[in-house]
Design a protein around this nucleic acid. Structure first.
Lengths: 230, 230
DNA sequence: GTCTATAACCGGATAGAC
DNA sequence: GTCTATCCGGTTATAGAC
């Protein structure tokens, strides 16, 4: 039990797999996803084409590895920024700005994220086991943004907000994909303004007058959150 | 001038093109998009593979023809239903229910719609010239749903609502894609409940107390509606 | 200039030997 | 676990027929 935490030395297969991922990520960065062929990945990793497919059933799974890396970078960029903010709008803005900065280098091929996210068969969609971790961790980040803030959130709403905010962030990314303005000015403007609106809406939601409406929304979100369940 | 409206008889090329579309639509319906190969389409249309590509630069453009047909079917299904409703929630529900019924037969391959809609390069995305018509006509349908209703809408909001509702309908379709419940029960529940909420929200938006918040939202939507502009 | 066909290319994916 | 050989389908080049 005491030494269970010591990771075993990587087997040969694990090292090969690692080489393939590393080669793929670099090629994706340099040339984009479509322009990177499995043959290029295999060659850069020093393995045969068939061998690359032995480790990654298809090209999308390599893309999934790429997203995981981007996601880790987002978490790493967002958390220190959160430490310096208290107001909810500022905290949401910190999370979203970190996201936009991390993904900026990949703008030219980020449409793929959506192609895959929308496809129920794809390992990248948030309801697919392979993509579920990233979605959960993304929600967790928003949960942290909420709990650390000075704004009081009605508890029924608090339970659903991380999921809603994560969905919101996906919407922002979708906008960003189409944003051709210099420096993604428009997306940044959208974030600045929507985080204010969200913060306002959350404050409004505590207003007793709006309680029935809030209850309805919360109930709706709770009931219908998982379309893939029967 | 007087005979300008008489369409010229279809040229040989036009008839060939028509045959190709018809063959493709039938094959898509029967086997789905991925499983339908360009070679199958060409053979079913009685032309060579190269000839099919002469008329349709790529497979996506055939898919675009398919979407156009689905879209026409939606318009045709929705309009008579609108004629029988007055309450806003009912009218929105009529439009959405017509949509869900029309697309139901294509559930298994509808993920493609999103793959393409999210991709800035795709002819199907609403900001791309080839896809813009469908988006505009979709908004037009929602505009009709609004103007024919008994609910009074503040005029600043009225200008933006058709676009917002069209976006909403895309969101519903995205949910529907992932919906595995029998009879798409969950999506129908989502529609029933969201149209009520939207109708309530629109009524709330007329409330003078919420005017500043409404102004903010409307202004935001107006400013940022077109991410592809610079 | 409009239309049609054949052959080839390229890249994702698979089969099967070692 | 690794390779080579091959398949398959989207796409392109190109030549020729009407």
């Amino acid at each position: 039990m005491t030494d269970a935490a010591v990771p075993p030395p990587p087997s040969k297969g694990e090292r090969t797999k690692e080489r393939i991922v590393a080669a793929a990520l670099e090629l994706f960065r340099a040339h984009g996803y479509e322009a990177t062929t499995m043959r290029m990945v295999a060659e850069a990793a020093g393995v045969s084409l068939g061998n690359a497919y032995y480790y990654f059933e298809n090209k999308d799974l390599l893309l999934a590895a790429f997203y995981r890396e981007v996601h880790e970078a987002h978490l790493a960029a967002a958390r220190p920024r959160l430490a310096r903010k208290r107001a909810l709008a500022d905290r949401l803005s910190a999370v979203m700005t970190a996201k936009l900065e991390v993904i900026e280098p990949y703008h030219r091929f980020s449409a793929l994220m959506f192609r895959s996210a929308a496809d129920p068969e794809s390992p990248l969609n948030p309801f697919h086991p392979a993509g579920a971790d990233i979605a959960r961790e993304g929600e967790q980040l928003f949960a942290e943004a909420l709990t650390g803030s000075s704004t009081r959130v009605p508890s029924d709403l608090a339970a659903e907000l991380p999921g809603l905010l994560w969905t919101y962030s996906m919407g922002i990314v979708l906008y960003w994909i189409h944003d051709r303005s210099p420096g993604r000015r428009k997306t940044h403007a959208l974030v600045d303004r929507t985080v204010e609106m969200i913060a306002s809406a959350i404050k409004l939601a505590s207003n007793p007058l709006l309680r029935p409406f809030r209850k309805k929304v919360v109930e709706l979100v709770r009931d219908l959150r998982f379309p893939t369940e029967v």
